[in-house]
Amino acid sequence: MTSNPKHTLRPLPSVMVAPNGARLNKADHPALPETVAEITATALACARAGADGIHAHVRDQDGNHTLDAGLYRELLAELALTVPAMQHQITTEAVGRYSPDQQIDLVRSVQPALVSVSLAEMTSDGWTSQVEDFYRWCDDSGIAVQHILYSPDDLGELVRLCSQGRIPATRLQMLFVLGRYGQGVPSTPETICGFLQLLPQLASEPDWAVCAFGHSETACLRAAERLGGKIRIGFENNTVNENGSVARDNAERVGQFISGRSSS
């Protein structure tokens, strides 16, 4: 299979905004975007604030997370018109609702330039030929897969699969997730070191980023940048600014993080 000419694999954005996620809604914050129009407007505001990428979830008519290929195609088309300089990443997040086959079907249908894929979710039914074919197809098609890793153990599993040739080991992109939604697992900057200790086991140096939850999000993201990583920021994980105030919107989170770099 030859590479897809419409996709040119680029490095991860330095600041990727995650404006909505799969779990929160307008009851959590009225500025959380849910419709295609709202997500697109948020992307534009965040681009003006300094974000160079967006990690987007689409919602159904009731505001619920969905892996709807049609909605993703609509969103990507709007983002291409409105913020063409940004990188546009879709998600395959299961949230306990979608199987690996459904996640794979979404990516094959939409064929995005960038997609985030949780290794733990994709292998929840075990390592199958369909999963292996999916990762190889993405690599052959020039689709940038950002491997979502919830713990150093997940990274250890990725290292193992890469060493066995089951997942392409070049041009690896990763997201280290610090903490958990509502599980009492705090986000701490020190957690990053557990991931970084495993990176020398890979055949090539990966492109990595970090996301974190709650009030400690900013401290974790600043630590990631100091260690050479990139960041994912936004209402998917946290709605509170570094000074403890509730952010007006995603663009304020982005802008305040970027403006605070000089003093961190």
Rank of each mutant, 00 (worst) to 15 (best):
4 N>Q: 04
5 P>L: 04
5 P>Q: 05
6 K>A: 13
10 R>V: 01
10 R>I: 00
11 P>C: 06
12 L>E: 05
13 P>Y: 07
13 P>G: 14
13 P>I: 02
14 S>F: 06
15 V>M: 03
15 V>R: 00
15 V>F: 12
16 M>P: 07
16 M>T: 15
16 M>A: 14
17 V>S: 09
19 P>Y: 09
19 P>Q: 06
20 N>T: 14
20 N>V: 11
21 G>C: 09
22 A>M: 12
22 A>G: 12
22 A>W: 10
23 R>W: 15
23 R>Q: 13
24 L>P: 00
25 N>A: 12
26 K>A: 06
27 A>K: 15
28 D>H: 15
28 D>M: 09
29 H>Q: 11
30 P>L: 10
31 A>D: 10
32 L>S: 10
35 T>M: 02
37 A>W: 00
38 E>Q: 13
39 I>R: 08
39 I>L: 15
39 I>M: 11
40 T>E: 00
40 T>W: 04
40 T>H: 09
41 A>M: 09
41 A>Q: 15
42 T>W: 05
43 A>W: 02
44 L>T: 07
44 L>E: 14
45 A>M: 04
45 A>I: 00
45 A>L: 09
46 C>D: 01
46 C>I: 06
47 A>G: 08
48 R>F: 00
50 G>P: 02
50 G>K: 04
50 G>W: 07
